[in-house]
Computed example of a mutant assay.
Amino acid sequence: MTKLRIAVLVSVGAHPISGAARWSRNDALALAMAQEMVKGAADIDVIHAGDPAEPALRDYLALGAVSVDAIEAPCGRDIVGALAERVRGYHIVLCGTRAESGEGSGLLPYLLAQAMHAPLLPAVLTAQLHADSIVTQQFLPKGRRREVAASLPAVLAVHPLAPFEPRHVYARQRAGHVAARVARVVGAPLAAARVEPAVAPPVKLAARESRSGRARLLAATTLQSRGGAVITHGTAVEKAQAVIAYLRRHSLIDY
């Protein structure tokens, strides 16, 4: 294989208390994972789509990036096309699962993988290179994990629980630089945002637990059934009567 090329996509985050612009922890996880994979054996290009004059981009220099390549795309435009053109030819593209501020819905890794015609590995906790493929450990609910392999090139979306020990070095922040370039591919205008009042979600009825703490813990960490019955036969009236009987038995209704 030719020389390995790795790109890390970074965005501008927001401080959870003050809201001030800073580095995004999710994207910093992607940068740390890339550094751990190559251990200095390959160059890592850090890419940002947005304002190159944003001071928060220099935080990534302090976290180990040699430089940050900022694509100066017009505000309010889709940046997927510009990013796909910029990372063409790279073997691995890493980014956080979602952004911390702005129009960050978590769709960027999926749209980018689709534009690159490359496989996407979401919720990645660790990654290891093997010849022309990459093996990742993915996060699953209830503490489970699984290994998934994919051929290169590939897009990796790093899970927020991936191991991370930030090392902010001021000297590296001063030594690095942010390079600006104008996007050649300009996407369509994004749909205007619409503000709507929040609607409280419906409250789910839950039967009172009568099991021991050990039994509840086992049920939460395993795939065993919690009981109940699946009614597949009978009329709609008979099924409704069974549901009402269950609600009355567990004191969820009083009629």
Rank of each mutant, 00 (worst) to 15 (best):
D69N: 09
I71R: 10
E72V: 11
A73F: 08
P74N: 03
L83R: 04
E85P: 02
R88I: 01
G89N: 00
H91S: 10
I92H: 03
A99L: 09
S101H: 11
G104R: 07
S105R: 15
S105A: 15
L107Y: 08
L108C: 06
L108W: 04
P109W: 02
P109Q: 04
Y110R: 13
L111N: 06
L111Q: 13
A113S: 03
Q114I: 00
Q114V: 08
M116G: 00
H117W: 00
A118F: 03
L120W: 05
P122D: 02
V124A: 07
V124W: 10
V124Q: 08
A127W: 06
Q128T: 14
L129C: 04
A131L: 06
A131W: 04
S133A: 14
I134C: 01
Q137M: 01
Q138F: 02
F139R: 15
F139K: 15
F139Q: 14
R146S: 07
E147K: 15
E147Q: 15
V148M: 10
A149K: 13
S151R: 15
L156R: 11
L156T: 13
V158M: 07
H159Y: 12
L161P: 06
F164E: 02
E165L: 09
E165N: 08
H168V: 11
V169D: 14
Y170S: 10
A171P: 02
R172H: 09
R172I: 05
Q173T: 07
A175W: 07
A175P: 05
H177W: 12
H177L: 13
V178A: 00
V178Q: 00
A180V: 00
